[in-house]
Protein backbone atom coordinates (compact mmCIF):
# COMPACT_ATOMS: atom_id res chain seq x y z
CA UNK A 1 0.00 0.00 0.00
CA UNK A 2 1.50 3.35 -0.98
CA UNK A 3 2.35 5.70 1.83
CA UNK A 4 -0.06 8.63 1.61
CA UNK A 5 2.00 10.93 3.75
CA UNK A 6 5.77 11.43 3.54
CA UNK A 7 7.66 10.16 6.59
CA UNK A 8 9.11 13.57 7.29
CA UNK A 9 5.59 14.99 7.45
CA UNK A 10 4.63 12.44 10.08
CA UNK A 11 7.77 13.17 12.05
CA UNK A 12 6.95 16.88 12.06
CA UNK A 13 3.44 16.17 13.27
CA UNK A 14 4.94 14.05 16.07
CA UNK A 15 7.45 16.71 17.08
CA UNK A 16 4.88 19.50 17.07
CA UNK A 17 2.46 17.35 19.10
CA UNK A 18 5.20 16.48 21.58
CA UNK A 19 6.19 20.13 21.95
CA UNK A 20 2.58 21.19 22.41
CA UNK A 21 1.82 18.47 24.95
CA UNK A 22 5.01 18.33 26.95
CA UNK A 23 4.32 21.14 29.46
CA UNK A 24 0.92 19.61 30.32
CA UNK A 25 2.37 16.12 30.60
CA UNK A 26 5.21 17.42 32.75
CA UNK A 27 2.78 19.30 35.00
CA UNK A 28 0.50 16.29 35.47
CA UNK A 29 3.57 14.06 36.03
CA UNK A 30 4.82 16.40 38.75
CA UNK A 31 1.38 16.41 40.39
CA UNK A 32 1.10 12.62 40.17
CA UNK A 33 4.55 12.20 41.70
CA UNK A 34 3.57 14.58 44.50
CA UNK A 35 0.31 12.70 45.09
CA UNK A 36 2.22 9.41 45.18
CA UNK A 37 4.63 10.78 47.79
CA UNK A 38 1.79 12.12 49.97
CA UNK A 39 -0.69 9.25 49.66
CA UNK A 40 1.34 6.11 48.82
CA UNK A 41 5.00 6.56 49.78
CA UNK A 42 4.36 6.09 53.52
CA UNK A 43 3.89 2.35 52.92
CA UNK A 44 5.17 1.63 49.39
CA UNK A 45 8.36 3.68 49.85
CA UNK A 46 9.87 6.50 47.85
CA UNK A 47 10.99 4.15 45.08
CA UNK A 48 8.03 1.74 45.12
CA UNK A 49 9.96 -1.13 46.68
CA UNK A 50 7.42 -1.74 49.47
CA UNK A 51 8.39 -3.56 52.64
CA UNK A 52 9.15 -7.25 52.87
CA UNK A 53 6.15 -9.43 53.80
CA UNK A 54 4.01 -6.37 54.66
CA UNK A 55 3.70 -4.11 51.62
CA UNK A 56 4.13 -5.49 48.08
CA UNK A 57 6.70 -3.99 45.76
CA UNK A 58 5.49 -2.09 42.70
CA UNK A 59 8.86 -2.17 40.96
CA UNK A 60 8.75 -4.48 38.00
CA UNK A 61 5.48 -6.06 39.16
CA UNK A 62 2.90 -3.32 38.54
CA UNK A 63 2.86 -3.49 34.74
CA UNK A 64 3.20 -7.27 34.71
CA UNK A 65 0.14 -7.64 36.96
CA UNK A 66 -1.78 -5.20 34.77
CA UNK A 67 -1.27 -7.58 31.81
CA UNK A 68 -2.60 -10.67 33.65
CA UNK A 69 -6.15 -11.96 33.76
CA UNK A 70 -8.00 -10.17 36.60
CA UNK A 71 -4.77 -8.24 37.29
CA UNK A 72 -6.01 -4.91 36.05
CA UNK A 73 -9.21 -5.18 38.14
CA UNK A 74 -7.12 -6.24 41.16
CA UNK A 75 -4.93 -3.12 40.91
CA UNK A 76 -8.07 -0.97 40.99
CA UNK A 77 -9.48 -2.71 44.11
CA UNK A 78 -6.47 -2.68 46.47
CA UNK A 79 -6.70 -0.61 49.70
CA UNK A 80 -4.30 2.06 48.45
CA UNK A 81 -6.61 2.83 45.53
CA UNK A 82 -9.97 2.44 47.26
CA UNK A 83 -9.02 4.33 50.45
CA UNK A 84 -6.52 6.94 49.27
CA UNK A 85 -8.82 9.95 49.63
CA UNK A 86 -7.66 11.24 46.24
CA UNK A 87 -10.41 11.90 43.71
CA UNK A 88 -10.81 9.28 40.93
CA UNK A 89 -9.13 11.40 38.28
CA UNK A 90 -5.99 12.03 40.32
CA UNK A 91 -5.93 8.41 41.50
CA UNK A 92 -5.90 7.31 37.84
CA UNK A 93 -3.13 9.84 37.20
CA UNK A 94 -1.02 8.34 40.03
CA UNK A 95 -1.62 4.78 38.78
CA UNK A 96 -0.48 5.74 35.27
CA UNK A 97 2.55 7.60 36.65
CA UNK A 98 3.49 4.60 38.84
CA UNK A 99 3.17 2.27 35.82
CA UNK A 100 5.67 4.39 33.89
CA UNK A 101 7.94 5.08 36.86
CA UNK A 102 8.25 1.56 38.28
CA UNK A 103 7.98 -0.66 35.19
CA UNK A 104 9.82 -1.49 32.02
CA UNK A 105 8.86 1.41 29.67
CA UNK A 106 8.14 -0.90 26.75
CA UNK A 107 5.74 -3.03 28.82
CA UNK A 108 4.16 0.02 30.48
CA UNK A 109 3.56 1.55 27.04
CA UNK A 110 1.43 -1.43 26.03
CA UNK A 111 -1.01 -1.03 28.92
CA UNK A 112 -4.24 0.85 28.40
CA UNK A 113 -4.02 3.91 30.68
CA UNK A 114 -6.27 3.84 33.76
CA UNK A 115 -9.19 6.28 33.74
CA UNK A 116 -11.27 7.96 36.45
CA UNK A 117 -14.20 5.67 35.63
CA UNK A 118 -11.92 2.60 36.06
CA UNK A 119 -11.09 3.91 39.56
CA UNK A 120 -14.78 4.48 40.39
CA UNK A 121 -15.57 0.89 39.29
CA UNK A 122 -12.71 -0.49 41.42
CA UNK A 123 -13.82 1.47 44.45
CA UNK A 124 -17.29 -0.05 44.26
CA UNK A 125 -15.70 -3.48 44.96
CA UNK A 126 -12.97 -2.94 47.57
CA UNK A 127 -10.76 -5.99 48.11
CA UNK A 128 -10.47 -7.54 51.58
CA UNK A 129 -8.37 -10.63 50.80
CA UNK A 130 -5.58 -8.68 49.13
CA UNK A 131 -2.63 -11.03 49.67
CA UNK A 132 -4.34 -14.25 48.60
CA UNK A 133 -5.93 -12.56 45.55
CA UNK A 134 -2.54 -11.24 44.50
CA UNK A 135 -0.96 -14.68 44.92
CA UNK A 136 -3.75 -16.29 42.84
CA UNK A 137 -3.32 -13.78 40.03
CA UNK A 138 0.45 -14.21 39.97
CA UNK A 139 0.18 -18.00 40.08
CA UNK A 140 -2.37 -18.15 37.24
CA UNK A 141 -0.15 -15.82 35.24
CA UNK A 142 2.86 -18.09 35.80
CA UNK A 143 4.67 -15.49 37.88
CA UNK A 144 6.18 -15.98 41.30
CA UNK A 145 5.89 -13.19 43.87
CA UNK A 146 8.75 -10.77 43.29
CA UNK A 147 10.95 -9.82 46.17
CA UNK A 148 10.75 -6.24 47.45
CA UNK A 149 13.04 -4.33 45.20
CA UNK A 150 12.24 -6.58 42.27
Amino acid sequence: MPCKQPRTGRAWVGIVAALAMSPTVQASDARARSDYMIHCMGCHGETGTGFKSQVPSMRGTLARIATLRDGRAYLLRVPGVTQSGLDPERTAEVLNWALREFSDPELAGRIQPFTASDVVAGRSQPLLEVTSTREDILRHGGLAEGSPGD
Partner: peptide, 8 residues
Protein backbone atom coordinates in the same frame (compact mmCIF):
# COMPACT_ATOMS: atom_id res chain seq x y z
CA UNK B 1 11.07 2.41 60.29
CA UNK B 2 10.51 1.86 56.54
CA UNK B 3 6.77 2.57 56.89
CA UNK B 4 6.14 6.22 57.66
CA UNK B 5 3.56 8.91 58.25
CA UNK B 6 3.65 11.57 55.53
CA UNK B 7 2.43 15.16 55.81
CA UNK B 8 2.89 18.53 54.17
Amino acid sequence: APITWVGT
